[in-house]
Amino acid sequence: MPSNVSAPATGERRHRRSLAGHIERVLPRLVVAPSLAVALFFVYGYMLWTFLLSLTNSRMLPQYDFVGFAQYARLFANERWHVAATNLVVFGGLFIVSCLVIGLLLAIFLDQRIRQEGALRTVYLYPMALSLIVTGVVWRWLLNPGLGIQAMVRGWGFEDFTFNWLVDSDMAIYTLVIAAVWQASGFVMALFLAGLRSIDDSLFQAAALDGASLPRIYMRIVLPSLRPVVFSAVMILAHIAIKSFDLVMALTGGGPGYATDLPATFMYAHTFTRGQIGLGSASAIMMLCGVLAILVPYLYSELRGQRNG
């Protein structure tokens, strides 16, 4: 640590120090200012900008003659948007629930003094390090009926085995769920494991001494104390689901037809390839509303929790 306790200051020195002191006082603000300016422009400014675009009739290029909320009316009358929004509910719901169940079970099983726990954890979590494009490419290969899992099981002698969801427009959305759960469930496992490790051992021992059975202890004591983790996990997973874009592009390309469109791919297609910037912007704003609908209650409860505790 520096220990240059300053010598008695002369007049000139004191003057220079006060100027330096003044700079010191504003310096912290100067250092943060660029980041704040960047956020104000690139986040908040852009949100406003996109909102304005959603009120215009922009097609190939942005232009600014306002048509009110006509694009939103078009959006809600749009068959493809309905498919995309419904898909998001189906995909998001199944994705979140599956990740929670698998993540919780793996965490509970791993928390039983397992040998090689570290190695197993590493295996469960590695997909999270991959790009969703890689995930999509690999699962597209696995799920391809001609040479993938279907062909492999048929090769084992089960000639009637059928697993062609990737090319079935009613089932293709579930292939997205499979790949996304494979990628993210290990992460939920890590969250739950951290939560389990932070539960007080004595609580557990007391219940065991009282003769409570293991499943009962988990139902009555462990699960309730994991509620905050569930909350965080749901919030993160829902966020991932709403933003899902890469996986769809690589795994199904939105198809067959537009059977696996999600709002993110709808927005991209209309804004950048179909020359419907106004409509695309309206769908982007709807996505923002979706994120806010999850985020605001979450932040509210977080802040209230901090104030209380």
Binding site: F42, W49, K243, P263, A264, T271, S281, M287
Partner: peptide, 11 residues
């Protein structure tokens, strides 16, 4: 938290 779709066109 911002969904990046909101910033694509302005960016």
């Amino acid at each position: 938290f911002v969904p990046f779709q909101v910033v694509l066109m302005p960016m």
